[in-house]
Amino acid sequence: MGPLYPQELLNPEYNLLIGALIGIGFGFLLEASGFTNTRKLAGIFYGYDATVIKVFFTAALTGLIGLFILHNMGWIDITLTFYPKTFWIPTLIGGIIMALGFVIGGFCPGTSLSAAVTGKVDAMAFIGGVLLGIFGFIFTYDGLWQSLRTSGKMGKVNIAQWIGIKEGLFIFLFTIIAIVTFVVFQKWQDSWKRKMDDSDIDDLGL
């Protein structure tokens, strides 16, 4: 059955409309779970707030398990969807650059948009930076980035097949890892709460 649009079961206008509706849900959830608060985002790295990891891993797991089961039941063919190709070198280097940007800037592109439109001035500066960065990247692409961006090409690689285990087993193991991660980060957050008095907690502006 699914995905509908790549199989022409959905006309392009409705597809864009559904994109906007899904975006509304996405933006709502980002804001509602506190992703527009840069201090909450930074909290993941220092342990005083575990929201990011909870939301992130729960979402990834729900999507992963849901799509896998739907695929197995024949309701959606994942092979027909956007399946990212792996270019491990640029993704690793790009990821490290993004990590630095995350710690310095305190946002990522999706959260910054939600934050900027709800009045976070720092997020507006951040978005300006993102666009400048993209323009800079485009203008210097041919001379500077092209060979790096296309290096380390591996094609469409499934991580379970890459490791060499059954996909279902990988999903199960990842579920366990995620739940352990939740517990660890919750403990970390609780230890912060114990160390600090109430004024310090208010000071974090969560």
Binding site: L61, G66, T79, Q161, F174
Partner: peptide, 29 residues
């Protein structure tokens, strides 16, 4: 409830088959 649901899904997933043809298939259009 959510944790239990995810764990259950993870267990069910073990018994399901892999997603085979990884090559992207071009649409008819």
């Amino acid at each position: 409830l959510i944790m239990a649901l995810l764990l259950l899904g993870g267990i069910i997933a073990i018994f399901m088959s892999d997603i085979k043809p990884l090559k992207h298939i071009i649409g008819p259009k």
